[in-house]
Design a protein around this nucleic acid. Structure first.
Length: 706
RNA sequence: GAGCCUGUAGCUCAGUUGGCUAGAGCGUUUCGUUGACAUCGAAAAGGUCACUGGUUCAAGUCCAGUCAGGCUCACCA
């Protein structure tokens, strides 16, 4: 054995060996199943530390394999709709092109090829982490059989009235060219302004309205005051002119208005403000949109064709000239921005598909509350319930090409009314399902990525199965869903709702959440701060085990992980220590001389055995309780500071002369430690194991003695 | 505004159901070691466990409050 553990000489060799040997392969053995569906990474980018955190899954999977269970870690990748299209459009931009330069099919094919390339890169990067994924059964969210399942789910929902089409205000990004659900909106605090604008009354005089968005008054349908506001009682029922135009709007009263804010008089712009939309509906007031999906003004006859920001400047200037701009004050406010590109989102009215959440959420809440689905750590249980409680109807339509096209078809036969001309179909229809004519067209939109993701646990297992091999029955409900706490809302909550809807059982028994990776100072990593650590660099420099160890050592379940170079180096040293302990035992083990040893030694060996047995017990107890990180800390402490620093140092002479009893006792404890350590540091443990047992053996073929 | 979390050694963090002189990594000081490992070993310094009060034979650990910081959600035009 080398004097040092040379990780670079072992890691890729061992991974290839594992794959060839099939130790990651799950079979229908009938043994007790343990299944984790891997959160499918986006197939559009390189590995980052967020992915490395899935090491907790690898630990569970490898532990269960060693515990003799049939452990199945389902590999997959996500098409990541908007994310991917956004990345791809940036590529196009570099070539001076845009998505509008290509017909739909061509653009789709281009992105498909792009994704397939990236996907392979990503998968190879995951291999570097040592993940024991069953690659032979890997799935992709746009595999045809997965798509069919997504279609079926949509149809079921459609048939049960759980998806509906509605004209609503949606969060629309005029830069990305698509709408989003409320979860993809990022609120940003800004220093804005509150403009006081005088609206001329038809009967003479003016009424002053306070607004943060002066440019939108072209779309107003009313001015609204509080019914009890004495300042304005006389105006209610009268009419005012929209400035710069001759359009007249009524002055109405509604208790929604806060008398203390601004001037107590509010303009109502239904097509461009969520609250106003509701109010206008209540008062049955309507007007055209004055902002288009391209982010430009329309229907104003004053600033048409201008972008919103420019339009505001022009409008303010014109108001100023007419003496209608009464006052401008600073005003702290929050704007909704696109999580993807940061553009301020426009609320715009659009016909979209929505999922009715209430019926789904109430079932999901029951599953969590009754403990059918257990949450680790438990503090996230409350959070999950409150998330489900407050879930609003889910907009699943996206106006992008890269995604699963919504299998909704509209009959163009004019005899159908309203929404009754829509039908859903899993197979591509050749005639209208409503009236039997051939005149229909498919919705242009694609699904929100999370719509397919929410079906991932059952969609993967169902499509992996065939008539002879029923992995679905064997492994569903899956055992654990492990992911970052940041996607509890976007993913976990939805998987429970949709999973239960479609399979009438829970998608997983346990939810295990891990934290976010932070830098040495506890700060979030971000490109702008320049503190991003690339996991591939670390693996290159210190080895995968060092990275894995650093992510697990000294962290508690669900807590954020502080990653520093020091910690990584310390873990590299630990791997080396393990190697060298093995080396020392190995080199003396050969001598094996039966001989008497002093009573003192026997006592020490007995102590060692006691300590080791206690450690083993605690180790398995922690794993049972989903305390996945802690056993590693204990092993570190035991192996280094007890086993090496104390026991080996004390018994060193006897080992050197090759006392058989001592040597075999040390060897036994050491190998036991390797097994327990293997889920955490798979490479170094396997490398040593092979030094002892031969290059064709794997520690994963061993079993715990418990 | 609502909810959640955190506050332990110079720094970053562990500390399961309350129980022996409070731990780790890195850093600091001293010493050692050239046949397991310098990616090493021995030893040391360093903490009123944010503060206050309470429960208890016993509290870093439970309860209440205060202060400080963080995260998430919802927000008045």
């Amino acid at each position: 054995m080398d004097t040092k553990y040379q990780f670079s000489q072992h890691e890729s060799r061992l991974y290839t060996f594992w794959e060839k040997k099939g130790v990651f392969r799950a079979t229908l053995s009938g043994k007790e199943p343990f299944c984790i569906v891997f959160p499918p990474p986006n197939a559009n980018a390189d590995l980052h530390l967020g992915h490395a955190m899935y090491v907790f899954e690898d630990i569970m999977i490898r532990y269960k394999k060693l515990a003799g269970k049939e452990a199945f870690w389902v590999a997959g990748a996500d098409h990541a709709g908007i994310e991917t299209q956004y990345v791809f459009e940036k590529h196009l931009k570099k070539q001076g092109k845009s998505r509008y330069d290509y017909p739909r099919e061509e653009l789709f094919t281009m992105i498909w090829d792009f994704v397939m390339q990236n996907r392979e890169t990503m998968e190879n990067q995951l291999r570097k982490l040592g993940f024991a994924l069953d690659w032979e059964k890997k799935k992709f969210t746009m595999d045809p059989d997965i798509v069919t399942i997504v279609y079926k789910t949509f149809k079921h929902m459609f048939d049960k009235g759980l998806v509906y089409r509605a004209n609503r205000l949606v969060n629309y990004c005029t830069s990305c060219g698509t709408s989003f659900s409320d979860l993809e909106v990022v609120a940003k605090d800004i220093q804005g302004k509150l403009y006081h604008i005088a609206f001329p009354l038809v009967d003479g005089g003016t009424i002053t309205v306070a607004t943060t968005r002066p440019e939108t008054f072209f779309g107003d349908v009313a001015i609204m005051v509080h019914p009890k506001d004495k300042r304005y009682t006389q105006y209610v029922g009268k009419k005012a002119h929209i400035p710069l135009t001759d359009r007249e709007i009524p002055i109405i009263a509604d208790a929604y208005v806060d008398m203390k804010f601004g001037t107590g008089a509010v303009k109502v712009t239904p097509n461009h403000d969520f609250n106003d939309f509701e109010i206008a509906k209540k008062h049955k007031l309507q007007y055209n949109s004055i902002i288009g999906f391209d982010g430009k003004m329309q229907n104003t006859h004053v600033v048409d064709g201008l972008r919103v920001k420019k339009a505001r400047e022009v409008v303010l200037q014109k108001l100023e000239e007419k003496g209608l701009l009464v006052k401008v004050e600073d005003h702290d406010m929050t704007v909704r921005t696109c999580y993807r590109c940061g553009t301020v989102l426009e609320p715009l009215p659009k016909k979209q598909w929505f999922v009715s959440i209430k019926p789904l959420a109430s079932k999901a809440i029951a599953l969590v509350e009754t403990g059918k689905i257990k949450i680790h750590p438990s503090r996230f249980k409350k959070q999950l319930i409150s998330i489900l409680d407050n879930f609003i109807d889910w907009n699943i339509s996206r106006q992008i090409v890269w995604g699963i096209r919504i299998p909704a078809y509209r009959c163009v036969n004019k005899s159908h009314k309203g929404n009754e001309n829509w039908f859903a179909s899993v197979e591509k229809p050749n005639k209208c399902a409503i009236c039997g004519t051939c005149a229909f067209e498919q919705d242009e939109d694609t699904f929100d990525t999370w719509f397919s993701s929410s079906q991932w646990p059952f969609a993967t297992l169902q499509t992996i199965s065939d008539t002879e091999n029923d992995y679905f029955s064997a492994f569903y409900p899956t055992t654990v869903m492990e992911t970052g706490y940041d996607i509890l809302r976007a993913w976990v909550a939805r998987m429970i709702m949709v999973g239960y809807f479609e399979t009438e059982t829970i998608p997983f028994q346990h939810v295990y959440l891990h934290g976010m990776v932070r830098d040495a100072k506890g700060q979030k990593m971000s490109k702008s701060k320049g503190n991003v650590i690339n996991p591939l660099d670390i693996i290159e420099q210190f080895g995968a085990d060092a990275l894995r160890g650093a992510l697990v050592f000294g962290t508690k379940e669900g807590g954020d992980v502080v990653l520093s170079q020091d910690k990584i180096r310390a873990m590299r040293n630990f791997a080396n220590k393990i190697w060298n302990i093995g080396r020392f035992i190995q080199m003396n083990d050969d001598k094996r001389a039966p001989m008497q040893h002093p009573k003192q030694t026997q006592d020490i060996l007995a102590d060692l055995q006691d300590e080791f047995t206690a450690l083993e017990k605690q180790y398995h107890r922690d794993h049972k309780a989903y305390r996945v990180g802690k056993p590693f800390d204990m092993l570190y402490e035991f192996i280094w500071h007890r086993f090496a620093d104390y026991y080996i140092e004390t018994l060193k002479e006897e080992m050197r002369v090759g006392n058989a009893e001592t040597c075999s006792a040390m060897r036994r404890v050491y190998l036991g430690c390797l097994k327990m350590l293997h889920p955490y540091l798979p490479f170094v443990t396997e490398a040593v194991w092979q030094e002892y047992h031969g290059k064709e053996t794997s520690i994963l073929q061993e079993r715990f003695m418990c």
